[in-house]
Design a protein around this nucleic acid. Structure first.
Length: 260
DNA sequence: TCACGTGTTGACTA
DNA sequence: CTAGTCAACACGTG
């Protein structure tokens, strides 16, 4: 599930459940999900507390009372789950922290594309991993600068985490639908005005999604999410929604509505 | 059985 | 070195 709005929700969830409790155990069933040796996580997390969170795009940083910052990425199927009884460990809760109040924090990850890492500095980590400023805070100037010299399709560009950290596949489709721009429009063929339109649509989609807690069903009626499937009916034109591959990802769009 | 998917990474090519 | 493409990763779903 997680693109920017979902990860934002996870952050709020973790802030309200899992901070300021001493970690009494760390359990990981599959070390593929760890970017550092298991022992490092035990060493830096045990007897420490989570003290605060920060999100950049789809990456979540959990500050601790110890000397390291825990980094989480949820992949395509991840979510946090705070629960009480040992027996309630979720089926895909591959990594679990136990707190001194008896509660547990599970990192659920059905497809195991998510992972945990440790770092010393959020800012260094951001730069080493080619992440832009979080898309929600990104300025128009930053956005224009990153688009400079790029030659490929606009959809690919806005999904690039070094351009707009947090935008994923469904958001990219939604942004371009709102902006009335075809996903295969080449960035070099776009006017300043076009770029600003995409930027404004990105901001709008992010805020609307966060406002509705990333519950797609509650989005406004003219949002692509409601008819983002092949052959569905475009809210504006009444024509069929088409599907194609752009940048290797399934892309849904409304041909007459979105200008190439 | 087979293709597909809300994401990232690394190998490879120009 | 940079931009872009593509397969790989894991596994449930239709």
């Amino acid at each position: 599930m997680p693109e920017l709005p979902e990860v934002h929700g996870y952050k709020v969830y973790i802030d309200s459940t899992s901070l300021h409790k001493t970690i009494t155990s760390f359990d990981c069933r599959d070390t593929k999900l760890l970017k550092k040796p298991k022992e490092a996580f035990t060493e830096y997390l045990l007897n420490e507390q989570l003290t605060g969170t920060e999100r950049i795009g789809k990456y979540l940083f959990l500050k601790t009372s110890g000397s390291k910052i825990l980094v989480m990425h949820f992949g395509m199927t991840g979510r946090p789950n705070y629960y009480k009884d040992e027996d309630d460990r979720p089926k895909f809760g591959h990594i679990v922290l136990r707190f001194d109040n008896g509660f547990h924090f599970a990192f659920e990850n059905k497809r195991k594309f998510g992972w945990w890492d440790l770092t010393d500095s959020i800012e260094d980590y951001r730069q080493e991993h080619d992440l832009s400023i979080d898309a929600r805070k990104l300025s128009l100037e930053d956005f224009k600068n990153s688009l400079n010299n790029r030659k490929t399709h606009i959809k690919k560009i806005i999904m690039d985490q070094s351009v707009a950290a947090g935008v994923g596949n469904w958001m990219a489709d939604e942004i371009l639908y709102q902006a009335k721009i075809h996903p295969e429009k080449k960035v070099e063929d776009m006017s300043e005005k076009h770029i600003e339109t995409v930027f404004d649509a990105m901001k709008k989609v992010i805020e609307v999604a966060i406002e509705h807690d990333a519950h797609y069903n509650d989005f406004p009626n003219d949002f692509l999410m409601h008819f983002r499937k092949e052959g569905a009916t475009c809210h504006h034109t009444g024509a069929e929604i088409k599907k194609m591959k752009v940048g290797g990802r399934s892309t849904y769009f409304s041909p007459e509505w979105q200008e190439l």
